[in-house]
Amino acid sequence: MNTFLSEWTKLVSTKAIYWTTGLFLFFGVGFAAVYGLDVPADPMVKLWTGMDIRIIKATSVVAAVAALSFFVTIVQATMVVTSEYRHNYQSVSFMATPNRLKVVMAKWFLYSIFIAILTFVTVLASLYMTKRVSGELSSTLPVWSDEGAIHVLWGYPVAAVLLVTFTQGVSWLLRQTAGAISIMGLWFFALENLLGLLPKVGKYIVKYGPINNFNAFLTKTSIDDIQWDYNGSIAYFGVWAVVIFIAGAIVVRQRDA
């Protein structure tokens, strides 16, 4: 319990967590407001019927959460781990709690709860922001009965926790803020698609890359020629996240503080 209280104090006693949390909310809710002001016509409906029918799609409303806000999650999850190394007081934490795995799990658990709640609140606020500004189109998004809305309300917090697991695993391996954020940022935004340009192996990287599977779940778009649908994709990403997190935890135990 003392370890949890200590890690909670560290989490909430820095200005960075408040600024980045504000950005998380701003990106998600701000984009939802802009989207709601000018909802585009559904391209598939127009393709089949030739009519410009505008329907609010929940996955489109929270598109900025999936991209920009989740990058903020990467930054926060990294700083939870690496700030101690940057300020060189990680030894104090490990002296206070000799069982280093307790420190690792406390950091993961506390920030996972924090980000799950923040993500749920942001997604819910985004959906209602779009409904509020979209006028007569608001009726096309019944938040609590729409399949897409239900998916983002539970799916995005789950995805956020798994992204934290993945990111903190990388952070424990590297122990360096700029390096971990750079690697995760590149991986999150571009790496797998760039590697997909490689001959022969590229198509397999695109199909089985963890971030591509992560995005497939967020957008409810199953990857072609793969053994699972978008729900299986988040389970696949979860396996990657757990394996990397365990690798990071093992390294923490074995190397010098």
Score class of each variant (00 low, 15 high):
K220Q: 13
F31I: 07
L162R: 04
A241N: 07
F109I: 11
Y204Q: 04
W48R: 10
L5F: 12
G238R: 03
L162D: 08
E7T: 04
A257T: 01
E84T: 09
T78E: 02
F237L: 02
W144E: 14
Q76I: 13
E192Q: 04
I115E: 01
A16P: 01
L118A: 08
V206W: 03
K57E: 14
S60Y: 15
V239T: 09
F26Q: 00
G169F: 15
F114C: 00
T97G: 07
I223F: 00
L47E: 13
P210F: 00
G232T: 05
V123S: 12
A106R: 07
Y111K: 00
I244V: 09
G135D: 05
D225Y: 00
V158I: 07
L25Y: 06
Y111W: 15
L5W: 15
I56S: 13
Q168L: 08
V39L: 11
W172V: 01
P142C: 15
L153I: 12
A106I: 10
F27I: 13
Q90R: 05
I113V: 09
T78F: 05
V80M: 11
V143L: 14
K10Q: 09
M105N: 12
D256M: 01
A33L: 04
T177E: 01
T82I: 07
V62L: 12
A125D: 13
D146G: 09
D38I: 06
S83I: 04
V170G: 08
G30Y: 02
V81F: 06
I183T: 14
V103F: 09
I234K: 00
S139F: 15
I117S: 02
F27H: 00
G232K: 01
L23F: 01
I74R: 00
I17E: 01
S139H: 13
D38N: 10
L5Q: 10
T49F: 09
A249P: 05
T49Q: 06
W154H: 05
I181G: 06
A180C: 04
T59C: 08
V158D: 02
S69K: 06
H87V: 06
L101G: 05
F120G: 01
V65C: 06
V201P: 04
G238E: 09
K200H: 08
A125Y: 10
V29Q: 00
W187S: 15
K46E: 15
A180W: 04
G135V: 07
T219D: 12
S139C: 14
S145N: 09
W187R: 13
G50K: 05
W172F: 15
L118D: 00
N213S: 03
A64D: 02
G169L: 11
A159I: 09
T9M: 12
M184V: 08
A247F: 03
Y111S: 06
L11W: 08
D52I: 14
L198P: 13
S182I: 11
